[in-house]
């Protein structure tokens, strides 16, 4: 009987590890492919103003990313280029490229609740966090939660991150970031799961900073293409400065 219990326990932990691996793989590869491009809109709301921007994005793996704002007209052509851990902003009005210094990494990108550090973030759940699959919550039976604690030596801002995923699809539904004192700092809600270019992804992500009342940033993916040929040389400062063609 005792041996049967040990076997069952071992089998259970194997299943748990497998589930955890699948959750991590799904999360890390959710929006990142060998290459990706698409258009998205970003709605930012603060107690003082709100605005919506549409933009075009290109990315290659985790290291390369280019974003260009399409609308509003006033900001058309404003862009951000990321190459590994470096980041630049281009301001077409003054024809200036500004390297984002490390001191501004925690600043909001384009006034949003997404920090420059979020965009530059090189970290993956698989490599940089210690993961723990939490027991099922009877109140949320369709959801599994993973507690992600940064591994020692990683320059990660958060004390730990809680990720809730749909048990069937393993697609995240919510991510909560806590600081070192276990205070909830930010909630991200993943919504409206749709298939884009054959990949099932949440097409709406809400960022809610818990320390700033009345602030919200919502990103809505309008179209996405994945895994097409895209050279690293596409991501250059010249490309960042290039005017946007068409309407």
């Amino acid at each position: 009987m005792k041996q049967l219990f040990i076997v069952l326990l071992f089998a259970h932990s194997l299943i748990g590890q497998e589930l955890l691996d699948q959750i991590v793989k799904t999360f890390d590869e959710l929006y990142k492919s060998s290459s990706a491009r698409g258009t998205m809109s970003m709605y930012i709301k603060t107690p003082n103003w709100e605005r919506t921007m549409t933009m075009q994005t290109w990315s290659k793996g985790r290291d390369f990313m280019l974003i260009k704002i399409l609308t509003p007209a006033k900001d058309r052509g404003v862009g951000t280029l990321k190459i590994k851990v470096r980041m630049w902003n281009f301001l077409p009005k003054t024809d200036k490229v500004i390297a984002v210094p490390p001191s501004m990494m925690m600043g909001g990108w384009m006034g949003s609740d997404i920090t420059n550090d979020d965009l530059v973030g090189e970290y993956t759940l698989a490599e940089d966090y210690t993961l723990q699959l939490l027991p099922k919550d009877p109140k949320r039976p369709a959801v599994r939660s993973v507690k992600c604690t940064p591994k020692p030596g990683r320059e990660i801002l958060w004390g730990f991150v809680m990720i809730d995923v749909d048990e069937k699809t393993l697609i995240p539904v919510r991510q909560r970031n806590f600081d070192a004192k276990n205070r909830l700092m930010r909630t991200m809600n993943f919504k409206e799961i749709r298939v884009m270019d054959g990949k099932q992804i949440p097409t709406v992500i809400e960022y809610i900073p818990e320390t700033k009342a009345g602030h919200l940033t919502r990103i809505s993916y309008n179209s996405m293409e994945f895994d097409f040929p895209l050279d690293e040389l596409f991501f250059t400062l010249t490309r960042l400065r290039e005017p946007i063609k068409g309407q």
């Binding site: 103003w49 605005r51 200036k96 949003s112």
Partner: peptide, 16 residues
């Protein structure tokens, strides 16, 4: 002089 700040509408206010 290049001036960069944040506009009241959240935009990146920049001017020469």
């Amino acid at each position: 002089l290049f001036v960069l700040t944040q506009g009241a509408d959240g935009s990146m206010a920049n001017e020469l």
